[in-house]
Design a protein around this nucleic acid. Structure first.
Length: 204
DNA sequence: AGTTGGATGGTCT
DNA sequence: GACCATCCAACTG
């Protein structure tokens, strides 16, 4: 699990920085609601509204470690990929092979990939993630899920892709991830898989 | 292993 | 009309 916090009107990296607009409207509503937006004209990003209506805030889900439903996630990734025009039949077949060969940790290892793996687009904005009847929802993890014994160790670093916001927003350590989890995008904590490592401004 | 550039369209000044 | 809360392929060393 990897997330980033975007908190308050003051946060110059947040979509809420211009006040309520057609796009960010739900950030100014009750917490526990999904906010899905389109980035770079191509990918979608899933956020969870996190504070009461008087304070716009959301958590961007940057990466998830899939524990179940792997086939469905691969199918959704393929569908999303094919949807944005993969002209030739050979091209589609190649993309299908590429995704089917992906390691589990790579299935939702990035903000655009999380939305693709869950089959989300902007129409999911407004869904109540705390309603047990919602097709997309948050649930408490059973103890020990994910193969950990104790509480997970959390690492905090600056957020990714927000240099344009300037200081202090670009440097605030508001990106959080579970130490050692191989699905973490852009450099996890040296953990399991012998993936790329990065210096941590660790904390927990 | 690290860097670069292209695809692509909604959103806000 | 510029600016992106991105991903991937195709480069370089």
């Amino acid at each position: 699990m990897e997330v980033e916090a975007y908190v308050g009107l003051e946060d110059r990296a947040s979509h809420a920085r211009f006040g309520p607009t057609a796009r960010n409207r739900v950030m100014f509503g009750p917490p526990g609601v999904a906010y899905v937006y389109l980035v770079y004209g191509m990918y979608h990003c899933l956020n969870v509204v996190t504070e009461r209506a008087d304070r716009p805030a959301a958590l961007l889900i940057r990466a998830v470690m899939p524990l179940d439903g792997l086939d469905a996630m691969r199918a959704a990734r393929i569908a999303a990929s094919v949807a944005r025009r993969r002209v030739t039949a050979a091209g589609i077949a190649a993309e299908r092979r590429r995704i089917e060969a992906l390691d589990v940790a790579r299935l939702a290892g990035g903000p655009g990939l999380v939305a693709a793996a869950f089959g989300l687009d902007r129409s999911w904005t407004g869904v109540d993630l705390c309603d047990p009847d919602s097709a997309l929802r948050l649930e408490a993890a059973p103890p020990g899920e994910g193969g950990r014994s104790g509480p997970p160790q959390i690492v905090a670093t600056p957020r990714i892709g927000v240099d344009h916001a300037g200081e202090p927003w670009a440097s605030l350590p508001w990106r959080f991830f579970i130490a050692g989890e191989p699905s973490v995008s852009g450099g996890g904590s040296g953990g399991a898989d012998g993936r790329r490592a990065r210096p941590d401004e660790a904390r927990d």
